[in-house]
Simulated assay, not measured.
Amino acid sequence: MLTDGVALTDHHCHGVVAADLDRPGFERLLGEGQRGTFDSAIGLAVRHWCAPILDLEPHADPERYLARRAELGWREATTRLLRAAGTTRWFLDTGFGSGRAEFAALAPGAVCEIVRLEQVAEQVITEIGAAKRPFEDIEIALRGRVRNAVGLKTIVAYRCGLDFPRTDSPPSTLVHERRLTDPATLGWLVGLGARIGAELGLPLQFHTGFGDTDLRLQSADPLLLSDFLHATAGSGLSVMLLHCWPFHRNAAYLAHAFDHVHLDLGLTIPYVGQRADAVLAEAFELAPFRALLYSSDGCGLPELHYLGALLWRRGLGRLLDEWIADDAITLADAERLVTAIASGNAARTYALAGD
């Protein structure tokens, strides 16, 4: 396949659990609900594709797979799976899971940080208590955190939905929450992230589409960002729509309509398993190729980082083989497309030094 061996930049992922896991612990991390299961498309993918990395035959049964994982130990299993992904650069959301240094000790290649807006704001609110200038303190802290980062991220979709109020002015009072849910504060915070991103050339990532049960899916449709995208067009900000399913066609439309919008399919790819090429094809219907990026959104289990890479390569490779057979694309154009989505678009959009 054209995608075999291509080096990847994983522009959005998380750290891994640094502990051995029993079956309930493993399966909890295998899905976005309250309990994942091996009895699913991703469970089949783990047994098929991850088993050989741990020296097992493909399709090893769950108990055998977990026994071998325990025998190797979490560190050996993790390093094997991360190395097998073929990823040479990782952009780590440090707002959830392990930190950059911990992940870098396990993963090959460069590890860069994505700063989560809500985490910074919540840390400041916890520390300052009843300070008189909380919003100024949040901005100072955020600017300090992004000095060595490559991007910003918001999970406003989880906290109040993507139809948050748009404002450049902080609310008159701060609702003192350890976990921010106040729409006025969140709207101001996203606006602050957008302004800092435009000023410093740091893309702003949005969680969109499916997630765990803390999310209300109807509030995570990226089309709800339309007014925000109109307001930020021409500002210099790059907007990254993450994951997107089942709204990936909506996200593709937004990338088609707005030059500063980009998208990935993230954890959608490992979760849909054998359907990866079909979902990729739907995103390709409208999205410009320059707007598509690769990510795994691997979190907790290194199996997810590995499967994100492997199933993305397989899905895109099969799709392009079909296009080439139908004379819809030349081999040279297909090769350029693969390189762009695998790493080139990330290098350009995140303005990485040396690329």
Score class of each variant (00 low, 15 high):
M1I: 08
L2Q: 12
D4G: 09
T9N: 08
H14C: 08
A19G: 05
E27C: 12
E27V: 15
L29F: 09
L30T: 11
G31S: 11
Q34M: 11
G43C: 02
R47N: 07
R47Y: 07
C50D: 01
C50T: 04
I53C: 10
L54V: 03
L56T: 04
L56Q: 11
P58T: 03
P58I: 06
H59S: 14
R69E: 06
A70S: 15
G73T: 08
E76R: 14
E76S: 08
R83P: 01
R83Y: 05
T88G: 15
G95I: 09
G95T: 10
R100H: 02
F103K: 06
A104W: 03
A105E: 14
L106T: 05
A110E: 15
V111W: 07
C112F: 12
L117A: 07
E118Y: 13
F135Q: 04
R145W: 09
A149S: 15
A149P: 05
L152D: 10
K153W: 08
T154D: 00
G161R: 06
P165Q: 01
D168L: 12
S172A: 12
V175D: 11
V175L: 12
V175M: 12
E177K: 01
L180V: 10
D182T: 07
L186T: 09
G191W: 06
G191D: 13
G193E: 02
A194I: 09
A194L: 01
G197R: 05
E199W: 02
E199M: 00
E199V: 04
L204I: 09
L204R: 06
H207Y: 02
G209D: 04
T213F: 10
L215S: 06
L215F: 12
Q218C: 08
Q218D: 14
A231Q: 14
A233Y: 07
G234M: 03
M240Q: 14
C244K: 01
F247V: 07
A252R: 05
L254T: 03
A257H: 12
F258A: 04
D259Q: 10
V261S: 02
G266V: 00
G266N: 03
Y271L: 10
Q274E: 14
A281N: 01
E285T: 14
A287Q: 03
D297A: 05
D297H: 07
G300A: 04
G300V: 05
G300F: 07
L301P: 02
P302D: 03
L310P: 01
W312L: 03
G317Y: 02
L319H: 10
L320Y: 00
I324V: 12
D326M: 10
I329Y: 00
L331H: 08
A332N: 05
A334K: 05
L337M: 15
A340D: 14
I341C: 00
S343F: 05
G344W: 05
N345P: 00
N345C: 09
A347P: 02
A353H: 07
G354M: 03
